[in-house]
Amino acid sequence: MNLISPTIQSLERALSTSALKQQTHTANIANVDTPGYKAKQVDFETALKNASSKQALASYKTDAKHIAFSNESSQFDPRVTVNENSDYKINGNNVDMDVEMAELAKNQLLYNAVTDRISGKFRSLSNVISGGR
């Protein structure tokens, strides 16, 4: 019997990814004036695609465009990549402050949504444990 639902496990992975993105973007902002520093980003989309392609069990889907899922935990491992392809500034630094601030704002929205959802899951569990009182 699995005491922690796959939904909670997925939400936990989403929170971990959000924390990794936060660390990455704040490191980029902290190094905005460091000569030769290359911006880093979390490759979330590729990790999600790889995790969904490794699923062992098929799921029931009502539309061909839905993402497949299973009850088994997948290997979801977002990677931090370095942007070596461009030089934004003359000193070799390629951190764009506007991009970093926009990414931080997007990440904050994701984090708030996931924490709200996981709080709801825990409230539901608490309600079941207490017998609905």
Rank of each mutant, 00 (worst) to 15 (best):
I4D: 13
S5H: 05
S5K: 07
P6T: 07
Q9R: 03
S10I: 01
R13M: 05
L15P: 11
L15I: 09
S16H: 05
S18V: 04
S18H: 06
K21W: 15
Q22K: 06
Q22F: 09
Q22H: 15
Q23S: 08
H25E: 10
T26Y: 06
N28A: 14
N28F: 11
A30E: 05
A30P: 14
N31W: 10
N31K: 13
V32P: 04
T34A: 15
P35K: 12
P35Q: 13
G36P: 12
G36N: 11
G36T: 06
Y37F: 11
K38V: 07
K40L: 00
K40D: 00
Q41G: 06
E45F: 04
T46C: 02
A47P: 06
A47H: 05
A47E: 04
L48V: 03
K49M: 13
K49Y: 08
K49F: 14
S52R: 11
S53R: 04
Q55L: 11
A56C: 00
L57M: 06
L57E: 10
A58G: 15
A58E: 14
K61L: 13
F69T: 00
S70F: 12
S70E: 11
N71L: 15
S73W: 01
S74C: 07
F76L: 08
F76I: 02
F76Y: 15
D77L: 14
D77W: 02
P78F: 15
R79D: 02
R79C: 02
V80M: 04
T81K: 09
T81G: 01
V82N: 07
V82C: 09
N83E: 13
N85P: 09
S86H: 02
D87T: 04
Y88P: 00
K89Q: 06
I90N: 09
N91P: 10
N91L: 14
G92A: 08
N93P: 07
V95T: 05
M97R: 04
M97Q: 02
D98N: 06
M101F: 13
A102C: 12
A102K: 09
E103Y: 08
L104S: 14
L104C: 09
L109E: 01
Y111N: 13
N112Q: 14
A113S: 11
V114F: 05
T115W: 03
D116M: 08
D116I: 06
R117W: 02
R117I: 01
S119T: 12
S119N: 15
S119A: 10
G120H: 14
G120V: 10
K121P: 07
F122G: 15
R123I: 03
L125C: 03
V128P: 07
V128Q: 05
S130Q: 09
G131P: 01
G131N: 01
G131V: 03
G131D: 01
G131A: 02
G132E: 12
G132C: 08
R133P: 11
R133K: 15
R133G: 14
